[in-house]
Amino acid sequence: MVETSKGGLFNTEKLIFGIRQVTQITGVSSRQLRYWEQQNYISPIQQKKGTSRQYDMHTLLKIANIQRFLSQGFTLSVAVEKAIKVGREAPLIRDFVLSRMNGVNIESDDRATIDFGFLDDSHKQRVLGVIDHGKTSFEIIDEV
Rank of each mutant, 00 (worst) to 15 (best):
G117L: 05
I42Q: 05
N40C: 14
F118L: 10
S122T: 14
I93M: 07
I45C: 09
K62Y: 01
V80I: 07
S122D: 15
Y35E: 08
M101A: 11
S99T: 15
S30W: 00
V78L: 05
N40E: 15
R53Y: 05
T113I: 04
L33N: 05
P91Y: 00
I114C: 07
I106A: 06
T23H: 03
A90K: 03
L15Y: 02
R111F: 12
I106V: 13
T26C: 06
F74A: 12
E89H: 03
K124S: 14
D109K: 00
Q24W: 01
V97C: 10
S122N: 08
V97I: 14
V78T: 07
Q47L: 15
E89R: 03
G129Q: 07
K85D: 11
I93E: 03
G18T: 08
K124L: 12
Q21T: 08
T51L: 05
G18F: 04
E37Q: 11
A79S: 13
I93A: 01
R20C: 05
E37R: 02
A90N: 05
Q24I: 11
R20N: 13
R126A: 03
G27A: 06
T75R: 10
R53S: 09
V97G: 06
F96T: 15
L119P: 04
T51W: 04
V97N: 04
E89A: 03
R53F: 11
K48N: 12
F17T: 09
T26W: 09
V104I: 15
Q67N: 14
S52P: 13
Q39D: 09
P91K: 00
E81S: 05
W36C: 08
D120M: 03
G129S: 04
E89F: 08
G103R: 04
E37H: 04
F17L: 11
F17K: 03
L76P: 10
D109C: 04
I84P: 01
D56S: 09
S29K: 13
E107N: 01
G18L: 04
E37A: 07
S52A: 09
N102Q: 15
T113A: 02
V86Y: 03
I25V: 15
S71Q: 10
Q54S: 06
S77T: 13
Q21K: 10
Q32A: 15
I66L: 06
R68I: 06
T59Y: 01
N105L: 11
Y55S: 11
L15G: 02
A90W: 07
T23G: 14
V104A: 07
V127S: 14
D121S: 10
G50R: 02
I66D: 01
Q54A: 13
T26L: 13
E89S: 09
L61K: 07
T75A: 13
G18P: 08
R100Y: 08
A112E: 10
H123G: 05
G50E: 14
E37I: 02
V22K: 03
S30I: 07
